[in-house]
């Protein structure tokens, strides 16, 4: 047993390859989050505007993402872009697109909730100082909202990271896909490889996600006090 761990993990460049796969998962998460948060902020602000049709459309957008599982989103982009629109992007771009649209939907709800929960007196005192609507957003509502929404945003980030485990489904060489390759290459000689490789990947995900969710919990507890 012991030997098989060492042989499989640390012989050749297996460990380095796993790390490389992990890096792929991480940068796809970061890019999706960055794009999704920007778009989501925009949509969230739009959702606080009084226009009924606009709210309705944005609400539909959100509900669509509430209903469709992420893995299905991934396939929607993966199949529909090339086949119906003749767009042939690298799979990683498609994943970022799917994730970013999903993040934007969820984040728009977080932003809207946060903006609406800034006390009315804050809005009124801002207006009383002669701030314009845009200035009110820029200097009063957004800064307070950002603080309110931080725990939920970190939580969303942990979910995006976990969701990158689906990347292999659209043939991206993420940490799990590489893990599978290593397992297949070693299966004959070391049948327990599957145990160690998946165990390692499990722990790697935990190492990335756990500190984030701890941080989010701490922030949330502080807010409640």
């Amino acid at each position: 047993m012991e030997h098989s761990v060492i042989n499989v993990l640390f012989v050749g460049n297996n460990f380095a390859r796993i790390m490389q796969g992990l890096w792929t998962s991480v940068w796809i998460s970061v890019d999706s989050l960055a794009a999704g948060l920007v778009l989501g902020t925009l949509l969230g602000i739009l959702r606080t505007l009084p226009s009924k049709p606009l709210r309705f459309i944005l609400r539909l957008y959100l509900e669509f993402f509430r209903i469709v599982p992420t893995i299905v989103l991934l396939y929607l982009v993966y199949y529909i872009l090339p086949r119906s629109f003749n767009i042939s992007w690298p799979a990683s771009w498609m994943a970022i697109l799917a994730f970013a649209l999903w993040v934007a939907a969820e984040f728009s709800d977080i932003v809207r909730g946060a903006i609406e929960s800034v006390p009315v007196t804050q809005k009124e005192s801002g207006l009383a100082l002669g701030l314009s609507k845009t200035q009110l957003f820029r200097y009063v509502l957004l800064p307070q909202a950002v603080q309110l929404e931080l725990p939920a945003t970190i939580n969303l980030a942990t979910r995006v990271i976990k969701t990158t485990s689906l990347l292999m489904m659209i043939s991206i060489m993420d940490v799990i896909a590489i893990g599978q390759q290593i397992i297949e290459a070693n299966n004959q000689k070391y049948p327990t490889a599957v145990f160690w490789i998946y165990g390692l990947i499990f722990i790697l995900y935990f190492i990335i996600d756990y500190p984030l969710s701890l941080w989010s919990k701490k922030l949330a507890a502080k807010e409640n006090r």
């Binding site: 976990k162 969701t163 485990s165 689906l166 145990f195 998946y198 499990f202 996600d209």
Partner: peptide
């Protein structure tokens, strides 16, 4: 709770389905 919440279901399933038979 912390382990289960902070790891993807996919890898949990792979572990159950592919790794457990080994033991």
């Amino acid at each position: 709770v912390e382990l289960a919440r902070n790891t993807p279901l996919l890898i949990q399933l792979f572990f159950l389905y592919y790794a457990f038979p080994v033991i």
